[in-house]
Amino acid sequence: MAKGEEIRHQIEHIIRQEEALTFTRFDENTAFELGSLIRNIALEEKLGVAIDISLWDRRLFFAATAGTSADNHEWIRRKFNVVRRFHAATYRLVLQHNRDDSMFAPHRGLNVEDYALAGGGFPIRVAGIGAIGAVVVSGLPQREDHNLVVRGLAVFLGLDLAGLALPSA
């Protein structure tokens, strides 16, 4: 399969993830349980990540495991801004924009200090409402940040991860 076709398939797969990984309700307790689940996966696998779950107006969960730094917090902030602006998984946008510099094209008018074109941000969607916030992970390569969020969401929602996971790159 040609590289362009492979990227198109991955984008379509991420859109299916976004559609499938939808909540019927989401509140502070949901955020804590989901964040704790992702943190436990990270601890079990010895992954150095920071995890943030926020609604558009406030943070509901934050945790960091060994191996993270203040830089991870900044990446989270910038990825969150991207999810908030586009209501889409940041890794999908990485693939759609196809840039190596983690920045949006200048004509988009998105300051690099506030917006990172990097995987690991995923919209929190509630059925009948739409996107209300984001789950963001930082610390791994961007595809793996994305995969960790998807894994946590699939397990939490009781969905089959095998059908949702991105195929190996």
Rank of each mutant, 00 (worst) to 15 (best):
Met1Tyr: 15
Ala2Leu: 12
Gly4His: 10
Gly4Leu: 09
Glu5Met: 06
Ile7Val: 08
Arg8Cys: 01
Arg8Val: 02
Arg8Asn: 00
His9Asp: 15
His9Leu: 14
Glu12Tyr: 03
His13Gln: 07
Ile14Cys: 00
Ile15Leu: 14
Ile15Gln: 10
Arg16Asn: 13
Gln17Trp: 11
Glu18Cys: 08
Glu18Pro: 05
Glu19Gln: 11
Ala20Ser: 12
Ala20Lys: 15
Ala20Asp: 05
Thr22Ile: 05
Thr22Leu: 00
Phe23Arg: 06
Thr24Leu: 04
Glu28Asp: 14
Thr30Pro: 01
Ala31Leu: 02
Glu33Ala: 15
Gly35Pro: 05
Gly35Lys: 11
Gly35Phe: 11
Leu37Ala: 14
Leu37Gly: 15
Ile38Gln: 00
Arg39Phe: 11
Arg39Ile: 01
Ile41Arg: 05
Leu43Pro: 04
Glu44Arg: 14
Lys46Pro: 02
Gly48Cys: 06
Val49Ile: 12
Asp52His: 13
Ile53Thr: 06
Leu55Lys: 02
Ala63Tyr: 07
Thr65Pro: 04
Thr68Trp: 12
Ala70Asn: 09
Glu74Cys: 04
Trp75Lys: 10
Trp75Gly: 08
Ile76Tyr: 02
Arg77Pro: 04
Arg77Asn: 14
Arg78Ile: 11
Arg78Ala: 09
Lys79Ser: 07
Lys79Cys: 09
Phe80Val: 03
Arg84Tyr: 12
Arg84Thr: 05
Arg85His: 14
Phe86Asp: 01
Ala89Met: 03
Ala89Cys: 12
Thr90Ala: 05
Tyr91Ser: 11
Arg92Cys: 02
Leu93Ala: 14
Leu95Thr: 12
Leu95Met: 11
Asn98Trp: 05
Arg99Cys: 10
Asp101Ser: 00
Ser102Asn: 15
Ser102Thr: 13
Met103Asn: 10
Phe104Lys: 01
Phe104Gly: 00
Ala105Glu: 07
Pro106Trp: 14
His107Phe: 15
Arg108His: 15
Gly109Val: 01
Asn111Lys: 09
Asn111Cys: 03
Val112Phe: 04
Val112Met: 00
Asp114Lys: 13
Asp114Leu: 08
Asp114Trp: 07
Tyr115Met: 07
Ala116Asn: 02
Leu117Glu: 09
Ala118Ile: 13
Ala118Tyr: 12
Ala118Arg: 14
Ala118Pro: 00
Gly119Glu: 05
Gly120His: 06
Phe122Gln: 08
Arg125Met: 13
Val126Leu: 00
Val126Ser: 03
Val126Gly: 03
Ala127Cys: 04
Gly128Cys: 03
Gly128His: 08
Gly130Gln: 08
Gly130Ala: 06
Ile132Arg: 03
Gly133Gln: 04
Gly133Arg: 07
Ala134Cys: 04
Val135Gly: 04
Val136Trp: 00
Val136Gln: 02
Val136Tyr: 04
Val136Pro: 02
Val137His: 01
Ser138Lys: 05
Gly139Phe: 06
Gln142Ser: 10
Gln142Asp: 13
Gln142Ala: 11
Arg143Val: 09
Leu148Thr: 02
Leu148Glu: 01
Val149Arg: 14
Val150Ala: 08
Arg151Val: 08
Arg151Gln: 15
Leu153Thr: 04
Ala154Met: 05
Val155Phe: 06
Val155Gln: 15
Val155Leu: 14
Phe156Ile: 00
Phe156Lys: 01
Leu157Met: 02
Asp160Gln: 07
Ala162Asp: 13
Ala162Thr: 10
Leu164Gly: 08
Ala165Asn: 06
Pro167Leu: 09
Ala169Phe: 10
Ala169Lys: 10
